[in-house]
Design a protein around this nucleic acid. Structure first.
Lengths: 211, 211
DNA sequence: GTCTATATGGCGATAGAC
DNA sequence: GTCTATCGCCATATAGAC
């Protein structure tokens, strides 16, 4: 199949580089899928390009033709996963109550996607080490999530919907911590824990909402 | 220094193997210290025996003379760290209020021992993978901690000291999750978070205690 | 775009001298 | 108890043919 004659998903324009044709795009997508699974199972350091290539059914060099390095591949895997999760807690969301519902929906979604949970759990812990290729990514991500949640809880505070003595900052940190910690326990025993239910109980303790 | 003439920490008895003399014991302790630091920094898989040996100042074979394999070394590191932390939440503790104070003391202790926190955070996430050498250790440990805390919260429930609608089981899981999750955030930015203070706020929300 | 072949290096573990 | 030397394996990444 000659790419010049293949159906082109993005209609050709003058000056557009010739690299991005259908075959390449589907191969890249397959690589990202496999890489997410491999990094999820054992983290970044334990996951190998060899394993990713084997799952896709290409050679290591074939893989490296699309992604120049292992760390670059990781970056794109994280970016891609973010796009999936973004629909659950769209930022900015002015209504704090909506954010609370979004969090619970996210927890439910996570329970149906063990791969994503594994990826984030394993990588976030691994990336606490300053030299890790995803260190900055997670640092920024935590700060972004924290400030988004603080904003949501501030909205609830303004409307008198926060429990007594709860501050938006502490509520944001505690909620993130709870979600992260529940995921670890869930990965060790997925039948023993309902992440969304536990999160709901927590949110009902720190707010006056019925969720 | 001839070991036969050295002060023997465990007085010699007939039939006792000759291996365990003072020199060996101090070397082993030094190895465990170094191994804890190395495993804490990058996890088990990324940490190397080479690095441990270099920090102790011996060769890899010298190291492997004391610990037959890398995974065996990890087991002993975990055992040793457990002995240190055991004094903070001695089990069984019949008084639930005492357990709450013990948890806060543990969080304070942890903040003074970044190495221990790194070790547990990184390893517990890495060990969610079933083939990991510490998988069973963490699975048992989570169950043990959960049941110990459930017992403590049950005691509080019996004495009418639990907040409305809080069950001992959910309280135990949520408390563990919160502590774990706070540690991750703390490792990314140690100045932004007071783990003990956040834990205290959480415990005061789910109980009627003044902590 | 994908391949074979290879460079380069770190890893855990063993053999055997001292 | 500690060492040097080495084995065998796996890793990332590059060079160059097709």
């Amino acid at each position: 199949m000659d790419p010049k004659n293949a159906a082109d998903p993005a209609p050709s324009r003058q000056g557009r580089p010739r690299g991005s044709y259908a075959k390449s795009a589907t191969t890249k997508a397959a690589i990202l899928d496999a890489a997410l699974a491999v990094f999820a199972e054992g983290g970044y350091r334990a996951g190998s390009l060899r394993e990713v290539a084997a799952r896709v059914g290409i050679s290591e060099t074939g893989l490296l033709h699309h992604f120049k390095s292992k760390s670059r591949l990781l970056e794109l895997v994280l970016e891609r996963r973010d796009e999936l999760a973004a629909q659950f807690v769209p930022r900015p969301e002015p209504d704090g109550v909506q954010t609370m519902h979004g969090l619970i929906a996210l927890a439910e979604f996570n329970a149906s996607e063990p791969g994503s949970v594994e990826l984030y759990c394993t990588l976030s812990a691994e990336a606490t080490s300053p030299g890790h290729p995803a260190h900055l990514y997670f640092k920024r991500r935590y700060e972004g999530t924290r400030s988004a949640l603080e904003y949501a809880f501030s909205n609830l505070l303004d409307r008198g919907l926060l429990a007594e003595g709860v501050t938006p900052d502490a509520a944001a940190r505690a909620t993130i911590a709870l979600m992260d910690g529940l995921q670890v326990q869930w990965l060790f025993d997925r039948s023993a824990l309902d992440m969304a239910a536990e999160l709901r109980l927590h949110l009902m303790r720190i707010t006056t909402l019925e969720l």
